[in-house]
Simulated scan of single mutants.
Amino acid sequence: MRHESVHRAWPCAGLALLLTLGLMPEGYAADNLSLKGNLVEQACTIRPGDEAIVLDLWDVTSKHLYINTRTRGKGFKVHLEDCNTTIGKTVTIMLGGRENTALPGLFALDGGSGASGIGLGIETLNNKPLPLNTVSDEQVLSDGSNVIELKAYVQGEPNAIRDQTIGHGAYTVTSTFTLDYP
């Protein structure tokens, strides 16, 4: 199936290349383009349903954030199945997204969120921060099923805490996670 998709994509790319080359002045060679790739096998598969994790965080009051600056972390898991340690012995995760400028390393709220003055952070079960767009420590894999366990928390922005201006309302944060088997 993948092989057919590749062949379908090449004619379109070739046509675009030919149209571009047709606009070049004479004297430019068209044989100086080299494309290379590597098709690799993944060490694990993501359990169906874990490709898009939705985590409902509990309601938090601004008063709690003014006193404690942040909430406790709420756990979530990424389940890995059919892991084969001959392909990869470890896994890392990186959560990508838009950074909160007032709280570096934490997620900014998505546009359209009613709340304000807060960011969302991710940490390990041992309370070690996992800043967004940063690769986690390696986790050793075993053959079969494995789990990556993390926690999400809400934190007030320093100025919003100082000035007591945290805005109430619903909020969302969107992230894309990337697994790597170094």
Score class of each variant (00 low, 15 high):
72 R>W: 07
75 G>N: 09
85 T>F: 06
100 N>W: 06
115 A>P: 10
112 G>L: 03
100 N>P: 06
89 K>E: 12
100 N>L: 04
71 T>G: 11
96 G>R: 13
71 T>E: 09
63 K>S: 11
77 K>F: 09
82 D>S: 13
100 N>D: 15
80 L>Q: 05
101 T>F: 07
118 I>F: 07
69 T>W: 14
85 T>S: 10
103 L>V: 02
110 D>S: 10
68 N>S: 13
84 N>T: 11
63 K>H: 11
68 N>G: 01
80 L>P: 05
118 I>G: 04
109 L>Y: 05
96 G>I: 00
75 G>K: 12
83 C>F: 10
65 L>Q: 02
93 I>Q: 00
102 A>P: 00
86 T>K: 15
79 H>Y: 05
84 N>H: 15
89 K>H: 10
96 G>A: 12
98 R>N: 08
89 K>G: 02
76 F>A: 08
93 I>V: 14
82 D>P: 00
103 L>N: 12
80 L>E: 04
106 L>M: 15
65 L>T: 02
68 N>K: 14
108 A>H: 05
69 T>R: 12
110 D>F: 04
71 T>V: 08
70 R>E: 14
84 N>Y: 09
106 L>T: 08
84 N>D: 15
115 A>E: 11
65 L>R: 02
97 G>F: 07
83 C>N: 05
93 I>S: 03
64 H>Q: 12
68 N>A: 15
121 G>S: 07
100 N>A: 13
91 V>G: 01
85 T>D: 07
64 H>G: 00
71 T>N: 10
83 C>V: 10
105 G>A: 01
116 S>I: 06
71 T>H: 12
70 R>S: 15
98 R>T: 14
67 I>A: 13
63 K>Q: 14
75 G>I: 07
104 P>W: 07
63 K>V: 08
82 D>W: 09
118 I>T: 06
77 K>Y: 07
94 M>D: 03
99 E>H: 02
